[in-house]
């Protein structure tokens, strides 16, 4: 066939590169949701159907609010990129399984509207949407948010007696001046499996570690944040435990209890709200760890992970600015002389 003359052949005209790795926002969000499945199943296993109710309500709520906001702002639908669904799952995992339905809907609304849509959608929000909602709910509805249900397992039905989380118990003991040995604390195995009180998604450390390893293997998240986060918590709580064993819990309990694993592998590594450079991620992780430990050991709230990550999200722009890598072939930091300042 004779090759086409100029003009009547409609080529695509674009800049290079013309090929791509194939990965996109949707595939990454799908992988993260996949990695959360073990944690969710463990949560449903321990907290029964109620946990599943929270999950469904949260995901539907987030997706509905996202559709509403897109229409309100006249923006193309962004449901396909699964980021709203992921926010829903993460939000659900941060809520106690007994949370009332309105609490979940308010949470989804805050997460999507205040957390993301108001900034212009995915990519521009400075704070992790799910955590904005969790902290908002924790401060506005403290009672419902700390209504922990003792895990009764799906088989034995649900009885709504409340049970404190390990960290909550330790905080009360410290408050009353009682030493730790007197308070009843679940042993490490129960902690690992998740047979303890807490938000329905954060209890089973083993399931979450499984999901985290999957994400690390797939290269969706980088090791710098989880290692920095958990590492610094272990170091600080370890020292505190050595100095006053009866007042502060040991590092193992601190790692397995509360929202640390969920926070380190799934919340802090949220790409949009964490630094882009590897050194920046390490600084971010360590910062989260230090703040979590400070709040857990001396603060008013038993659990500091959410506050720590939000504070480090606020610090991310500064971290990005000051942890830029040294350019290839740049000898001194200031090799590139600034343009004459205006």
């Amino acid at each position: 066939m004779t090759s086409p003359g100029p003009g009547d052949f409609k080529f695509i005209i674009s800049v290079s590169p013309h090929v791509h790795s194939g990965q996109d926002v949707r595939s990454v969000m799908r992988d993260v949701i996949l990695a959360l499945v073990p944690g969710v199943l463990a949560g449903i296993w321990f907290f029964g159907f109620d946990a599943f109710r929270v999950l469904v309500l949260a995901v539907l709520g987030c997706v509905a609010f996202e559709i509403g906001m897109n229409r309100l702002l006249g923006r193309a639908s962004t449901i396909r990129d699964l980021s709203a669904a992921l926010t829903g799952v993460l939000l659900a995992m941060n809520l106690p399984s007994g949370s009332p339905w309105w609490l979940i809907i308010v949470g989804s609304g805050v997460a999507i509207i205040l957390g993301k849509a108001i900034y212009g959608g995915l990519g521009y929000n400075p704070f992790n949407p799910a955590l904005v909602a969790r902290v908002f709910l924790l401060i506005s509805f403290p009672v419902q948010m700390t209504h922990w249900v003792v895990p009764a397992g799906i088989t034995t039905g649900l009885d709504g007696i409340t049970g404190a989380t390990p960290l909550g118990a330790a905080k009360e003991a410290a408050g009353l001046g009682k030493s730790l040995s007197e308070t009843i604390l679940p042993d490490t195995l129960q902690l690992l499996l998740g047979n303890v009180g807490g938000s329905f998604g954060e209890v089973s450390a083993l399931a979450l570690l499984l999901g985290g390893a999957f994400l690390l293997y797939r290269g969706i998240i980088r090791w710098q944040i989880p290692v920095g986060f958990i590492g610094s918590v272990v170091v600080i709580t370890g020292i505190a435990h050595l100095l006053q064993p009866d007042r502060y819990l040991g590092p193992v309990v601190h790692v397995l209890a509360g929202g640390l694993i969920l926070g380190a592998f799934f919340m802090a590594t949220d790409m949009v709200t964490s630094p882009v450079t590897r050194t920046g991620m390490l600084v971010f992780g360590i910062g989260c760890g230090v703040l979590t430990s400070v709040i857990r050991l001396w603060g008013g709230y038993p659990e500091g992970v959410s506050f720590a990550i939000l504070l480090m999200n606020a610090l991310t722009p500064l971290i990005d600015r000051y942890t830029r890598p040294r350019v290839f072939g740049q000898v001194s930091r200031k090799l590139f002389e600034e343009a004459p300042s205006s």
Partner: peptide, 13 residues
């Protein structure tokens, strides 16, 4: 507002 919410984490410190 969100930043001050995050700062409330230090309450009781």
């Amino acid at each position: 507002g969100v930043l001050s919410m995050a700062f409330m984490g230090f309450a009781g410190l």
